[in-house]
Amino acid sequence: MITLLEAGLLVFIVLSALMTAILRDVLAAIIVFGAYSLGMAVLWIVLRAPDVGLTEAAVGAGIMTVLLLVSIARTTRLTGIELRPVEINWGVAALCGLFVLAILATVPALPDMGQTVGNPVFGEIYNHYVTMAYEQTHVENVVTAILVAYRGFDTLGEATVVFTAGVAVLTVLRREVDA
């Protein structure tokens, strides 16, 4: 059953996502997007994913907002915040509506929220991770155990992706002196 907190958060998230889409002013959109990320971070905590919540708060609400802000700081003429909406292109909106309906059509086939019966996620692998993680790795936080031990190869590649992104940004923004 949905709790009041969850319902409030979900409404907040959907509304702030809508506002992000509708606001014409980029600065306003970024600020609302920061609020959206923060709402998401709280939702992750409510859904009992503290690791994800911590990451979302630090990365999504913190660093992401900062990166968006600094990248518009010099590319957009900022003259205060205006709250004008964009003109909605109803053709595209209808297309996106169709897309949403197509996804909604698959929703009834998904397992009920919070139920483990008929939820393929709670299978043998789940049992193995949850019961064996401490025994095998002596790490209390199962998320960390999976991240580094069971799926370490994945994480190594991932760290490389982050590194590569840094190199790629340096490459893209490398300045030709006196070009």
Binding site: P50, V59, V139, N141, T144, L147
Partner: peptide
């Protein structure tokens, strides 16, 4: 990060902040 929620990704971002 081994004993409580957290880890390298989050800690790294906080240090960078």
């Amino acid at each position: 990060g081994a004993s409580s929620p957290g880890g390298g990704f989050q800690g790294g971002v906080i240090v960078a902040s």
